[in-house]
Amino acid sequence: MNRSRHPGTDAIKSKGWLLAKKWLILRRFSQLSILSLFLLGPWFGVWIITGNLSSSLTLKTLPLTDPYILLQTLFAGHTPETTAITGAIIVLLFYALVGGRVFCSWVCPINMITDAAQWLREQLKISGSSTMSRRTRYWILAATLILPLVTGSIAWELVNPVSIVQRGLIFGMGLAWFIVVTIFLLDLLVSRRGWCSHLCPVGAFYSLLGTHSLIRVRADAREQCDDCMDCFMVCPEQQVIRPALKGQLDKNTNKIIGPVITSSNCTNCGRCIDVCAKDVFHFGLRLNNKVNDTGNNNKTHSNNISEQLNHSSGVEVL
């Protein structure tokens, strides 16, 4: 691995700029379109969607409600009206199907902030990072569900950057820019991918929601992997790639792990597909997760990458 080289350089050479940024561009398009749809009303008086990510009404008919915030109202002891319940069920089914954290990488406006921080981190070659456990988010998720039980109010919404920033853009920012700056600096200076991949309970919730989601990234062509590490460099959840890419041995079943990235922490952002010059990855279904290649081959790959990972301080694997 050549660390001075920007990840994706080979992919741009072999596939062309557009194909090497395909999913990134689509993702930005999705994030910005969704935000624009919400902003069309307040800015131009075109009311396609009213509300915000917490709850919205599209074309005056389709209700959508964030199941995470609705869960918090339930824990606060409130029985919601059917509109909110219907909206939450629609959202639940959608993300349970396409991958919970699709919300994180395709919808959430904070993702653009943390991606920007990560980009700058690479440009400035900031490699130090405080090591937080990626499980911290699940503890925070638990805390945000206990708080309404204790206080009777949806306490997390007082500080939730995801909803505060999106709501702020639509209804007025107030001091919400401070949150944007704080998250940016956290990800830039304190911890690599600190917010989205370690702390955010919204992401943790959607992670759990997408545990059995149908749409997954697959490393079907994993034997073509040349260990260039580009996918690891761009991945916000680096730990999810290795089992599927390297065909590690599953300790529980004692079998070689199949090519599907099954971890629900994977955000289905598709960046690994973009930057891989060897076209190892593609979007697919989680079905048919069988091992086609020989075990020996994988073992050597596995050892290879582990050694490299141990030597590269810039990459954190938990």
């Binding site: 009311w47 009213t50 509300g51 915000n52 915030i69 919601p80 949806i154 209804f171 107030g174 919400a176």
Partner: peptide, 24 residues
């Protein structure tokens, strides 16, 4: 405070711009 999910739809449907959403 336990029931309101801060979506702002009441604000949107107020014909007189009476209602406001509290900003951060």
């Amino acid at each position: 405070l336990g029931a309101c999910i801060r979506c702002g739809m009441c604000v949107r449907d107020c014909p007189y711009d009476t209602l406001k959403l509290a900003t951060f």
